[in-house]
Simulated scan of single mutants.
Amino acid sequence: MGRFGLVILVAVLGLSLSSVFVVSEGERAIVSRFGKVLKDDVDGKEVTRVVSPGLHFKIPAIDKIRHLDARIQTLDGAADRFVTSEKKDLMVDSYVKWRIRDFEKYYLSTNGGIKANAESLLQRKINNDLRTEFGRRTIKEIVSGKRDELQTDALENASESAKDLGIEVVDVRVKQINLPANVSNSIYQRMRAERQAVAKEHRAQGKEQSEIIRATIDANVTVKIAEAERKALTVRGEGDALAAKIYADAYSKDAEFYSFLRSLEAYKESFAGNNDIMVLEPDSDFFKYMKSVTGKGN
């Protein structure tokens, strides 16, 4: 085979490969020729040709293939602001499960089956439906058990409004509901101020109670000390009175013996120290029992 024959073989092989395309499982394809979508005649009506999964042929360099994902897809956009029936703003984060139902309508409505265009249009419709549902409800109804009802109503409305895009909405879910940042900050500041005021009040009440308790304890201590001192003085007075009575009784029974005993006690206390010095007159009454047992001089 000459060089020319080899060139012909390579060209034929390349042409054959470029005339074949594969549609994977979970996909569909739309074929356009010279910028126009190929259509089939079905019961006298022209219907866009939707290529199913498998191996297919096309005209090289003339036919253009657009692959479309036929599986369920997730649209998880950014959180958006909605207004409730009370005119309160909420930041709502939601997501949508969707898939292509009418490939012809989807291809035409999204400018050639461009997924970004489809998601932008679908997101707009979903937000409009959610905005309607949120506008019919209060915050209490939204955050309570009626959220399921809201999602069901939004799904029904979105399914109907997405038909003109050739899209089937499988599910609509609200992930999170928050207040706007500026509103949240003001609420947190108000809550913090209220908590601080409550804490300050509790501290003041505690300080007041501590002062009352301390004053009560001090008063009780003062009263008890005064009562103890009063009882001590009473007991001491009674003791002194009893001692005086005993001394008086002893003196009345034997005055001389009592005087002698008191003198001995005086001698004992006076001469207890070794270095004691006493200056007394010899005829002092202090020494009268040293001179005579009877205490009388000779």
Rank of each mutant, 00 (worst) to 15 (best):
R195D: 15
A215L: 01
S24P: 15
E281R: 14
H56P: 09
E119Y: 04
T222F: 15
A78W: 03
Q123N: 15
I187L: 11
K245T: 01
V143L: 14
S18Y: 14
D102I: 08
A250K: 10
R262D: 00
R66F: 07
I59M: 12
F286A: 00
F21T: 06
K207S: 12
R99C: 03
V83P: 02
T48W: 02
E156H: 15
A232W: 04
R195W: 15
E46L: 13
R236A: 08
V293L: 02
R3M: 02
S120W: 02
R124V: 14
K288F: 01
G14M: 07
H56Q: 13
T110L: 05
V169F: 08
L108C: 00
V96W: 04
K58L: 14
G206S: 02
L179T: 15
Y107K: 11
T48K: 00
K200C: 09
G35A: 06
H202C: 01
K140L: 07
A29F: 05
D76G: 07
Y258V: 08
R214L: 07
S210G: 00
S161G: 03
V235S: 09
G135P: 14
I212G: 01
F260Q: 05
L68A: 06
V51S: 02
F134S: 10
L261T: 09
D285P: 15
I65K: 11
H202N: 07
L242N: 06
R236S: 06
R81N: 11
R236C: 01
R131M: 10
V42I: 13
V51C: 01
H202L: 09
S284H: 06
F103E: 00
D63L: 15
